[in-house]
Design a protein around this nucleic acid. Structure first.
Lengths: 223, 223
DNA sequence: TCCAATTATGGAATGATGTTCCATAGCGCA
DNA sequence: TGCGCTATGGAACATCATTCCATAATTGGA
């Protein structure tokens, strides 16, 4: 037996501890706030020591993302497949809203753990719907959910970096859009006023329902 | 009159020239390849000079993105609104596939020019459909199109960075997924084999058609 | 035509970051 | 007690974006 992971140092530095600390820093200071120096300071150690437990920054970010995603997905059961898919989507939307740094991580984490977890949850519900092209449907739902949630998170992150709250941020964009040349950008300039009061979360669910409804209809048509 | 933008230096350094060179570098070397040093070398100047024409790297990236998006959107006319929306989506999908670096730029460019251009094009078509909740619909389409296209581009970028071509990359992920514990990840492990042969572009259009169809149906139901 | 102001340049400095290196400390085991 | 493995932490390194600054080119006015 070579593998005896018993107590090592006095104050053991563990991968889990590193990931948790990273999440705290990311939540508090945003994506740019997580540096190996800051992380080392928080953990009262040096940057080099962290690399013993973590491959590199990407590895750390994906691991952090995975922890949060796992938590976000463990709730909701006993609903219809359609409602469950909405619930999964909302769970991810809210998680990204709370942890905006996850957006860019999820985008660069193709095929890795956090994505797999989401696919698995959606996939099981889609399978329960007896769809023919399972993977196409799951792929579309995954892309929509992650894509929209990430977009929303990016706005939050952007607002945070500029020290504005969400509504101030949307107000600034609205002002910008309202000032556009109405001849060149008739639609965008006309829609500007509706931007601040807009409920992104509600539209997000509406989009999922649209997709799920269309899928359901496809199944019904075939039968 | 203070503003006389006539010929300045012998070999004038212009914003347009900088942006074009940046696009070339981004296409050739990927996102990480664009540094101010590399850009200065290509332009036979110093890094400092570039800052006279460009605010910072984000500004440059957004401007580069805008040029490509503008080109990608200037085609197609004379179709039905539904088909035009599909066509716009495909234009963006293909542009991101050809220029994978645009994915992360578009995600961080909320409310700025490239996004405005897309919204404008989609918005005009949606308006032609006489939808009640215009902005909600446009918002959903925008998110889906940019989200899915960016996700696809991220895969391409990731594959590029690992020196693999697209199918080798998908094959690697498929192997990874196939090796998952079937008890813990029944869906993902079962779907692994279908990953490499999968046509993302076709599914992308299918998703748009699903959304557009649902919107259309909503309009018909109301009338 | 010459001069001062403005516009523009390019290369050197700055500061921050991810990552690697390395001397050494803690710990289990013989 | 000493050998070897696991860990540690801080210094060193290379790379960037960005800022600074001395100075060149150009222009508009006297």
């Amino acid at each position: 037996m070579k593998k005896t992971p018993r107590a090592r140092q006095r104050n053991a530095l563990s991968r889990e501890q590193i990931i948790q600390t990273a999440i705290t820093i990311l939540d508090d200071l945003g994506e740019a706030g997580l540096t190996f120096q800051a992380l080392a300071r928080s953990l009262a150690t040096g940057a080099g020591a962290i690399y013993w437990h973590v491959e590199n920054k990407d590895d750390l970010l994906i691991a952090a993302c995975d922890v949060v995603i796992e938590r976000a997905l463990d709730a909701n059961v006993g609903l219809t497949p359609e409602e469950e898919i909405c619930s999964i989507g909302l769970g991810i939307f809210d998680a990204l809203d709370l942890h905006p740094w996850m957006g860019s991580v999820l985008s660069h984490a193709a095929g890795s753990m956090p994505t797999i977890r989401i696919i698995e949850r959606i996939g099981n519900q889609v399978r329960a719907l007896n769809v023919v092209e399972e993977w196409s449907v799951v792929s579309a739902l995954l892309s929509y959910i992650v894509g929209v949630a990430a977009q929303n998170a990016a706005n939050a992150q952007f607002a945070l970096r500029k020290g504005l709250n969400r509504s101030k941020f949307l107000g600034e964009i609205a002002t910008l859009w309202a000032a556009l040349d109405p001849d060149q950008f008739p639609f965008t300039s006309s829609i500007a006023s509706k931007l601040p009061g807009h409920d992104d979360r509600a539209d997000f669910v509406a989009g999922i329902r649209l997709l799920v409804g269309a899928i359901r209809r496809g199944v019904d048509d075939a039968s």
